[in-house]
Amino acid sequence: MHFSIFRYNPEHDDKPYMQDFRIDLESSDLMLLDVILRIKNVQDDSLTIRRSCREGICGSDAININGRNGLACVTNVRKLREPVELRPLPSFPVVRDLVVDMSRFWKQYHSIRPYLVNDEPPPEKERLQSPAERERLDGSYECIMCGCCTSQCPSSWWNPDTFVGPAGLLQAYRFISDSRDRATGERLQDLNRDPYRLFRCRTIMNCTEVCPMGLSPSRAIERIRLRMLDVEGHGGGLARHRVPTVR
């Protein structure tokens, strides 16, 4: 199978380049990550990729596969169009090869205060939720923070320092819709404090399209806008969609 992989080592290379690799698939090569790791182990051990759980939960092996962001560990390698072009997540600064610097992404995530804000005296055991209140978190708590959405969002490309981005906004919605949180008003106000944090979103829905968990950040952004208008919506969680196969 033919792969064309983005290479860049800032210590040696003046600029990035694409390197070709050819490898015969073995029966144990199911997912793209299996093959990348075999290329690294057998052909070029300097090839750098970030990965951990290898089962689509940690989100660390998010890369751009044939022009589309996805997780290498849950992408069926046999369905990919050849040559398989692998690049780091678009618009994120490259650390080396397929590894990107996610500091800006985390900075935006932290800016939405991704934790419950509740100054009321804590109950003896825990803050309980009814099943209906818990259901409202569906479709937002499952985010694995892989960065696929934010990296594929043009609004984030143009204003990465000021626009929170789809991943951060999905998390903002997760806390806005949490019955145990007491800072809903402040959270909404914070997202409406300038024309950038939320309102750079033009609803082109690339985020929803590429989310490997089938989540819908664009729907969450719509719900935040409705909450700003005091419209509660249906009250339920966000629907998840089938993840399209990367080819």
Binding site: N192, R193, D194, P195, L198, F199, R225, M228, L229
Partner: peptide, 8 residues
């Protein structure tokens, strides 16, 4: 005319 108002 920014943020929510502009959007509306």
């Amino acid at each position: 005319l920014t943020g929510l108002r502009a959007w509306l």
